[in-house]
Design a protein around this nucleic acid. Structure first.
Lengths: 356, 356
DNA sequence: GTGAAAGCGCTAACAT
DNA sequence: ATGTTAGCGCTTTCAC
């Protein structure tokens, strides 16, 4: 591995000069020297050592992104958009897959601190606020994606999310408008603000319509460790089977994300129920597969391209302003979600016979 | 950010001692000193600076993983498994998303070289062998996943892949056994060894059965830059529409991966063709969605858990043995793929009327 | 315009 | 058992 010294020697100049042509202001080296240095760099296949560079300068042009599960294409898409947005500012992004395990999230955060990464975007996940507070106290700029910075002002530098509750309302109103009265909520652990919000929206809209969301219709699956890839789909599948086995089964299901919804399709098929004939399903996120599924899934879309851009811009701005503490502390941007009606929803089977 | 000096001062010892208790052999510090140091670390929330540490030691416990597209859950799953396998050896993995762009792949590789990452696993993608050769020459250990190290012995330290051609044969034989005679191949650019191999297997099996794979049945979509997330699905969708519009349309389609197959479902639906009634579809990879789709997709499974483990183990072993050059140069492990028959395949529509 | 030299935070010899 | 010190490869004043 060639070092800067080798380059300097090869070009017959000092290391300082090499460093200058490589990243000092333009006017500080003669065209001729510069050419010689560049030639040497080329010849020696020199790659600057990032560790040394950042040790000296103390900062990295890298953002961390912690996502709960790469198995969910929603987060794959988020990674993609965040990466793209960061690139425009000359930043790289280090994507960490926490697999919805708090311990891994913590480990990664620790690593980042040690890697001079100064800004991290957390995707919705079960990490505790205390933990984030701790990180923030140690100098890490924390941003939240798809997760509200509730309460903890000063901890989260900025956050973006859609209005989760509104998303829940959109789904509920659509279903209620179709004539559904017994709507179930299917989710993994309801412990993130996004899931809590979605459920709250569903409940609120139902109550406004004079309906009640029964406890037995809130299906909350446990995340089994190592469930990995198939988690969401498996959970959704199991949920439908159990829900439809009830005495007074729901006629519609609203799921915490599209993965559960897709799994719900499989569950419905398992027991011979048709979507949307026997059971209507509304998902959340609008992942690529939503449109391709048969029937195409009605879902709540999150404009992740825009959201990614906003969070990246804010975080970097915040980082480079360098002002600690209160500055933009807790600035939250709320985005309006969008209901995408496709073919997984229809009036309930008994519609027009027993109701209204 | 507290440094090792602060800790030393707080604990009333020297930096060397702190370093020792943090990572020197156990016996070299008194229990009492160790306790004081640890207390100081705790109090100051000290996090060792990774840059400095690796600058000194010269090596990182980090592997790079370059995947062609996080939008394809197959690669999401691979990331997951590689990460898990690496963790067992105490390694982290830096996942890079090349988006099937050679330039990005190159940029990432450059970064890794600069970050003291010494081993990188490349997922199948269109990078040129020359480029890899260059990286290898500069000291990076290169491993290939799902891509054969054809020709270039000495460049790729190790590689794992399924026997692509055999996979193609499995798909073809299944289809031929069902009575299909006109089988199409749907893919993006056929430029990776994996795709080339799959196509070759299809062709070989057809020829063995006395069938011919017509050129017009090889649908090779161009990857449009920025097509991003939906690339595969979109391509598959367009392919089916075009293929079925031909005068003598294929009765079955074998796709280069499941994403294309899923898109193909949508394309079939667009033109009112039923799967498998009017057109049979066989995918490749067996991503989570394959089972959930309606109808469940017949596909060729790659045992990625096992493959990830093998490649990680080999790469790390190779890295730690430190022997340059010939050592295990080009060691390739071939895994047998598996045909998973589900419901997207059936005899061709005219079966029993015009044939055999 | 270019060279010399002082560290960045840490580890590993080497003293004590 | 602990302290001292010399760098790792680079950037960056500061002289020349």
């Amino acid at each position: 591995m060639a070092g800067i010294k080798d380059v300097a020697q090869e070009a017959g100049v000092s290391v300082g000069t090499v460093s200058n042509v490589l990243n000092g202001r333009k006017g500080r080296t003669s065209t001729e020297t510069r050419a010689r240095v560049l030639a040497a760099v080329e010849k020696l296949q020199y790659t600057p050592n990032a560790a040394a560079r950042q040790l000296k300068s103390g900062l990295t042009q890298t953002l961390g992104l912690v996502v709960p599960s790469v198995a969910n294409p929603f987060w794959g898409a988020v990674s993609h958009h965040v990466e793209r947005a960061a690139l425009e500012f000359g930043y790289k992004v280090l994507v960490c897959n926490a697999e919805r395990e708090v311990a891994r999230e913590a480990t990664y955060a620790e690593d980042m601190l040690g890697s001079s990464i100064r800004g991290v975007i957390f995707g919705s996940s079960p990490v505790s606020m205390d933990h984030l507070r701790d990180l923030a106290a140690r100098g890490l700029r924390v941003a939240a994606f798809d997760r509200r910075s509730r309460g903890a002002s000063g901890v989260v530098a900025c956050s973006v999310s859609i209005d989760q509750e509104l998303g829940g309302r959109f789904a509920a109103r659509h279903l209620i408008g179709l004539g559904h009265q017994r709507i179930a909520f299917v989710s993994g652990p309801i412990s993130t603000s996004s899931r809590i919000g979605r459920l709250a929206g569903l409940r609120a809209a139902m109550e406004e319509a004079g309906l009640v969301l029964e406890d037995r219709h809130i299906w909350q699956g446990a995340t089994r460790p190592g469930f990995g890839d198939t988690e969401g789909a498996q959970l959704g599948r199991a949920a439908v089977r159990e829900l439809l086995a009830q005495r007074d089964p729901p006629t519609a299901i609203f799921t915490a994300n599209d993965m559960y919804a897709l799994g719900a399709y499989a569950g419905a098929r398992d027991i011979g129920a048709r979507v949307p004939g026997d059971i209507s399903i509304v998902g959340f996120d609008d992942i690529v597969f939503a449109e391709i599924m048969q029937p195409p899934l009605t879902t709540i879309r999150q404009p992740i391209g825009r959201m990614s851009e906003i969070i990246v811009r804010r975080l970097i701005h915040d980082l480079e302003d360098g002002r600690r503490g209160d500055a933009g502390g807790g600035a939250h941007v709320d985005i309006t979600p969008e209901l995408v009606v496709r073919a997984s929803t229809a009036p309930p089977p008994d519609h027009g016979r027993g109701n209204s």
